[in-house]
Design a binder for these strands. Structure first.
Lengths: 303, 303
DNA sequence: GTCACCCATAAATTCACCTTATAGGATGAG
DNA sequence: CTCATCCTATAAGGTGAATTTATGGGTGAC
């Protein structure tokens, strides 16, 4: 393989114009340059591609055949370049997101807006627990992760784009319902249903307890926010969950948020990605979109 | 357009092996050469095609897309090269022949044999009068011409491959039928039907007459051998035609060949082509075939 | 930490390509 | 036929790109 694109390009031009000299003019080259390139091409091909008939030149059979292929290759190359330009212009592309399961309550809105703006970007969204998020980052199988606290074991960039208030919920008839400024001591006597070890919410709660020098109250572990909310409704105890997961339950008055001192625990949603991963234009677009449209995402709450 | 095949080739290899170093090894290059080519490619594309993740590299989205196109282009190029090789090996190709109309009586056999040997060569055959042959040669619209005397106005190569005896024919009941060693004087008194001016046969007859210092006898002109043979059968006179056109008429005893002194006029069939035209492998093959198989073409005659 | 491995960068060399200059062949006008 | 013109081929020289050697930096395994 020693045929070059330059050779084919010059060859096509010469074949079209039926003249070395004119081809040279059109390609902003000198005539000898064209002569030499064609000569080399002929050497590669093993046969002449043009007949030199006096002043004029004519394609040989081999030349005619080669011209077909040269045109095909040219078209392929143009398609490739077009593709690259589209990708560069963020018209097209794929975006792979991974998110913590609790982010499920606002990401659909986020993605809906993004999709409207960039209709040709194909999005795939994976939901994972903390271990899964970590693995995705480690193996670089995702473009971006939506999560709370990023791990510190990797060189990651993390940008806060939204608050994530953790609140204590209770069933509507609870004895503390409606009470203002409930003290931590008061709630500490209650039963709690909290997330399993490894969950970000659980970690946040533990951190909160230790900073306020409290023992963890009696508690049941469950591995999903949905399950916790159901359990709280059933009267098994109080729950600590992200406020963002409560929209429906609050509207339907199935759950209430207790007004406890030092609550809500303010955590944050972050956009996390590897520092060493190059942003694709699509990733960049999503990144920018999220930081810009974050405010529109929050439904109005009554604390 | 500044992407080169070299870049794409290296890119494909790197993408396949997931390593600059190994790609370099496989391509018999050094690692920096690979680094730089990829770097340039990325500049052309406007985006990185690989993520450098620690020791490993991974295709970016743009890289994945580009890889598709790079592979397509590679395939196209291989097809082109395959085509060229086939042409070089004469497996395939087109052959355009042009022949004098009187050559019609043996070329079919010639072509049949050639086609059997090279079944993938597509042959097109044009029949033309002398003016047409000349034009075809002048405009270089044919690969080879089968004719008698080539013109001298062009730089042509002409190779004799077969004799072309011109004989005098008469209807079976003619008074000279069966007579041995008829003198020229005797036949000179007959009426003749001969080809029109411009025809090769006519030219040959004129030359013959002038070398033997004879006047042209009374004659009717006709512009095809077929017409002449019909006319001779109808008793309009004697004819001078190529013996090769007579196979059927002789077999069916519709015409006879007179045994005249200095006859047959021995002319020749030639393979004619422009000296400045490059032989395609196909043309070369035909040329060789004709010179080799010429003897098989001649049906056995009884003069 | 040390070693091995891999990619990036720098400088020097090699090589491909282009340009200028010139020759040769063909064509068409006088 | 001869000259002028147009086109392509060839030669020599210069420029820039690609490659190599040498080296640096970062990562992961031990």
């Amino acid at each position: 393989m020693h045929i070059t694109l330059k050779q084919l390009q010059i060859f096509r031009t010469v074949a079209e114009l039926q003249s070395y000299t004119q081809a040279a003019r059109q390609l902003y080259l000198t005539q000898p340059a064209v002569s030499m390139q064609i000569k080399q091409l002929e050497e590669e091909v093993g046969m002449p591609v043009f007949d030199r008939i006096g002043k004029k030149i004519q394609l040989t059979d081999a030349g005619r055949e080669l011209l077909q292929h040269a045109r095909n290759i040219h078209i392929q190359l143009e398609e490739a370049q077009q593709s690259m330009e589209e990708l560069r212009g963020i018209k097209r592309g794929r975006l792979h997101l991974t998110m913590a399961s609790t982010a499920n309550y606002f990401t659909p809105r986020l993605l809906a807006g993004f999709c409207r703006e960039y209709p040709d970007i194909q999005i795939s969204l994976s939901v994972a627990n903390r271990a899964g998020l970590l693995q995705a980052l480690e193996q670089n199988t995702t473009d971006m992760v939506i999560m709370g606290e990023p791990p510190t074991t990797m060189p990651l960039a993390a940008e806060i784009f939204m608050e994530n208030p953790l609140v204590i919920v209770a069933p509507p008839g609870h004895r503390l319902a409606g009470k203002k400024n409930i003290t931590l001591k008061e709630v500490a006597r209650e039963h709690f249903i909290i997330r399993e070890i490894g969950s970000g919410t659980r970690a946040a709660v533990e951190r909160f307890l230790s900073t306020h020098d409290l023992e963890r109250p009696q508690s049941i572990e469950m591995n999903s926010s949905e399950a916790i909310k159901q359990a709280v409704q059933a009267g098994l105890g109080l729950g600590v969950v992200s406020m963002h997961t409560l929209e429906m339950e609050l509207t339907l008055k199935r759950l209430i948020v207790l007004n406890v001192e030092d609550f809500p625990i303010m955590r944050h949603w972050r956009l996390v990605y590897r520092k060493d991963r190059h942003f694709s234009p699509v990733s960049q677009a999503f990144h920018d979109y999220v930081l810009e449209h974050t405010s529109e995402l929050l439904p109005s709450f009554t604390t």
